[in-house]
Design a protein around this nucleic acid. Structure first.
Lengths: 114, 114
DNA sequence: ACGTACACGTGAGAC
DNA sequence: TGTCTCACGTGTACG
């Protein structure tokens, strides 16, 4: 039988011969891909309620989550400022009550709480 | 020009003929890749101080940024709780001062400010 | 000249 | 079934 040609070597599993340089290129490409995948996994681990293990979903949900967190930070900062103001107002009020010297002649110290 | 054989078609720019099915597969693969790239861009737009426009950097810095934001949220929540407690204490104190019924019979209302 | 980063073609598997 | 998703090989470009 005359089947001992090159085709015998490069059959079922892409085992064809390559110059060592090209093989390193192949390995470089593969490990780059694997590295990216690890980072995808690392990112997806930080995202709550990740439905689908798809790359597109990881990126999409990462965007949503970052936006949510930034909103949350903003809301908390505002709330925090309110609380600070409230404390200051209360302290001032206490001071007024303690020293008993406030509010009789001025109209800007009309402090009401809701 | 007598060179109108198939070689004319598949010359310099991979313009070889393909069955329509395979061509759709090619287009599917390409648009999937483009879609991912758009999401990469969308994510990188949310990340401050992104040095390099590399996919690996986007994923890495996204992880860092999410962690930073989560820490920030936690810190703000704690601070907010402190402020809330402070306000409550001040309100209670004010109430005591106003109603003037505190401290004489109970030892747990010993509120001091520093 | 070598390594890194990437887009695309493509085969395979999932749904 | 046809579509979607992905890993990998590979050509290309940049440093």
């Amino acid at each position: 039988m005359g089947s001992n040609n090159q085709m015998e070597q490069l059959d079922h599993a892409r085992a064809r011969w390559l110059p060592p340089q090209a093989e390193e290129h192949i390995i470089a490409g593969r490990s780059w891909c694997e590295k990216l995948n690890q980072k995808f996994i690392a990112l997806s681990a930080l995202i709550p309620d990740l439905k689908k293990a798809r790359k597109a979903s990881v990126l999409e949900d990462a965007v949503k989550h970052v936006k949510d967190l930034q909103e949350k930070v903003k809301a908390l900062e505002e709330q925090n400022m309110e609380r600070t103001v409230e404390s200051v107002v209360l302290i001032k009020k206490s001071h007024i009550l303690v020293t008993d010297d406030g509010g009789s002649s001025s109209d800007e110290n009309n402090l009401d709480e809701s």
